[in-house]
Design a protein around this nucleic acid. Structure first.
Lengths: 201, 201
DNA sequence: ATCGTAAGATAGAGGCCCTTTCTTAAGGAG
DNA sequence: CTCCTTAAGAAAGGGCCTCTATCTTACGAT
């Protein structure tokens, strides 16, 4: 150990190491010892900060989420706003979703914590900010606010999350477009039976 | 041990014990030793059948799935068929989904197996059989087959699965009705903006 | 009755989680 | 500059869990 790190720098090194181990070997094979070795430190250093393996995992997840905040797009059309946001989410969140669900599902009986309890950061980082997309679309006269139920608002992101949770990977772009053009937009802006071209904004 | 079980009876006792431990304590706290004790046997008996903890988990999942096959409803209307099936799935599959996702997500990096690879048994047991619901609706003239994309066919079950995977529990019946009346049926049979009453078949 | 096989019992090795103890480096105060 | 405090780094070890080896015993078939 050539140089001792202290405080926040050391903590970041530990969390980055933990994340690397989670993504490389998966939740099942994640070991505290591997994190310690990767971070070039010793066990008490880690346990001074997190009481056990699970708390370390949760801290690594939270740390990674914080480092990957999403911007809210403003493209001038609802379709493009939603697709852009979905593409952003798609390119950064599949891995995170896999690890989060692995941890929460394994501990649900003990903790009662569900993905839905943290689902906003899982997908978008800010629910209120997504509402901005819809407000803008209403202002532009693109959609009728009467059609805008909570379930429909969350629909594209629910389906994207479903993709993550059933494939553990980013979805093909074609799938994002199907979700928006075949399901989401027809529900909001047109005769639902029109198909993709009628649904195009 | 007053009476020795042999063969299939012993194997069923082991698998039932494994399932009981998974549902009671969750995937994270599941131990082979607890299964052995619950089944009233010894470790080599278990390891003669399954090479390790993970294989035992998978066998318990498969055993439980086999014991909970779903019937395909035939109510005379698509709405009732889909709702009935969703209610059946809802009442029997949330727990199974939680355990399956816990195992698969934790091992994804090592195995590459995703829920989608076994998603049919997870939800319905038989994809072709669900297609029968839609064929009947087309025969009855309820829906236009041109509207019936693969993604729309799977939509209610995808959204139900999404409920399971974000709550680890059965969904409220209200949610099932919202999925069908607010999203699924408007896409298939009417002007999507009509709301629940217009969507009712 | 005997024989073969699987069930049941038990001890133990290795790995992992977590804790205790000790040494050492680094930062801050005087 | 020195001294003190605190956290980092090192290492040993206990307990639990997974899994294996070994032995005894029960049960079914012949």
């Amino acid at each position: 150990m050539t140089e001792r790190r202290r405080g926040a720098a050391l903590e970041k090194a530990l969390l980055d190491a933990a994340w690397a181990e989670l993504t490389l070997h998966g939740y099942a094979k994640f070991t505290v010892d591997a994190v310690v070795k990767r971070a070039g430190t010793s066990p008490p250093v880690l346990y001074r900060r997190w009481s056990d393996r699970d708390e370390l995992v949760r801290a690594a997840i939270a740390h990674t989420m914080k480092e990957a905040r999403l911007a809210i797009p403003d493209t001038g059309s609802l379709r493009e706003d939603v697709l852009t946001l979905m593409r952003e989410i798609n390119s950064t969140r599949a891995e995170l979703a896999t690890i989060v669900i692995a941890h929460l599902a394994a501990h649900y009986q003990a903790t009662g914590i569900r993905p839905g309890d943290i689902t906003d950061p899982l997908v978008t980082g800010r629910k209120e900010a997504v509402d901005v997309l819809f407000a803008r679309a209403v202002d532009r006269g693109e959609i009728d606010p009467a059609r805008l139920t909570e379930r429909i608002k969350s629909l594209p992101f629910d389906l994207l999350r479903h993709e993550f949770l059933t494939t553990f990977a980013a979805a093909p772009d074609r799938a994002l477009e199907e979700i928006v053009d075949e399901i989401f937009l027809p529900l909001l802006v047109g005769d639902a039976g029109g198909g993709a071209s009628a649904g195009r904004v």
